[in-house]
């Protein structure tokens, strides 16, 4: 036996990106726009969807709910009478901490693509891994809440750079926190200059209108899309 060197020069995530492109082609064929919705656990993703999905003008929205285990979030959203599909990462790889293109591919047959215009994929709560894996989305949105600390953009630059919109949630809590909002916005600007931001409170409803309008524009294809 002897050893031979084989030149590869291939991005290790190419396989995932190829499947993501196939997912996107499937969504496009049905005229469905897709948002990859990401945040740390507890930032308010599900509540932010609950607040708007019933009232998106004529946009028909569906949700693909990614969780390691359980269907608590999916049950909350299904009670609003919108199509919700649960995707648990647990059975496949012992509880992946993110969705990847292949997991979303496996869920496509159970998605009512003919009945929706917009699919929001609620990713597993995590600020690291979801930023690495494209799933076939047109746009990526992350939620950052003011209880998380101003330094998060500097600690998780991959995530803050991977999205086209940063939602800053729980601003109703600002009077009770020693939180420097200007510093957070400066840090976001350092890591991802020019990224769009929306300040809101999912609890009081302040700023929710801007989020609703953003989603309607996403469904009506007015946003810039990330390359496939």
């Amino acid at each position: 036996m002897h050893r031979v060197k084989v030149t590869v020069v291939e991005e290790a995530l190419d396989a995932n990106n190829t499947i993501a492109a196939a997912n996107r082609a499937d969504f496009e064929r049905h005229g469905v726009r897709v948002i990859n919705f990401m945040s740390a656990p507890g930032a308010g993703k599900t509540t932010l969807l609950e607040q708007v999905v019933r009232d998106l003008d004529d946009v028909r929205v569906g949700v693909l709910e990614g969780d390691v285990q359980g269907s608590m979030d999916a049950d909350r959203l299904a009670s609003l009478h919108i199509p919700v599909t649960q995707l648990n990462t647990d059975p496949s790889f012992g509880g992946e901490c993110h969705l990847d293109a292949n997991m979303v591919r496996s869920a496509i047959p159970s998605l009512p693509l003919e009945e929706i215009d917009l699919l929001v994929v609620e990713n597993v709560g995590n600020l690291v891994c979801p930023a690495e894996f494209r799933i076939g989305e047109d746009t990526r949105v992350m939620v950052c809440s003011v209880t998380e600390g101003e330094d998060k953009p500097l600690k998780y630059p991959l995530m803050f750079r991977a999205c086209e919109l940063v939602i800053i949630n729980k601003i109703d809590l600002l009077p009770h926190l020693e939180f420097d909002l200007e510093k957070l916005l400066r840090n976001i600007d350092q890591v991802h200059p020019g990224v769009e931001t929306i300040l809101l409170s999912a609890r009081t409803g302040e700023g929710i209108g801007a989020w609703r309008e953003w989603l309607v524009r996403a469904a009506t294809q007015e946003h810039e899309r990330v390359p496939a």
Partner: peptide
């Protein structure tokens, strides 16, 4: 992770290197 240009303060900044995650080669028996 500071992505604004230190000279002009602009945001039209691209990553020259540092985003790689590439299998360059393998050695096989």
């Amino acid at each position: 992770p500071a992505f604004r240009c230190p000279t002009c303060g602009g945001s039209e900044v691209e990553i020259a290197t540092g985003n790689e995650f590439e299998v360059e080669s393998i050695e096989v028996e």
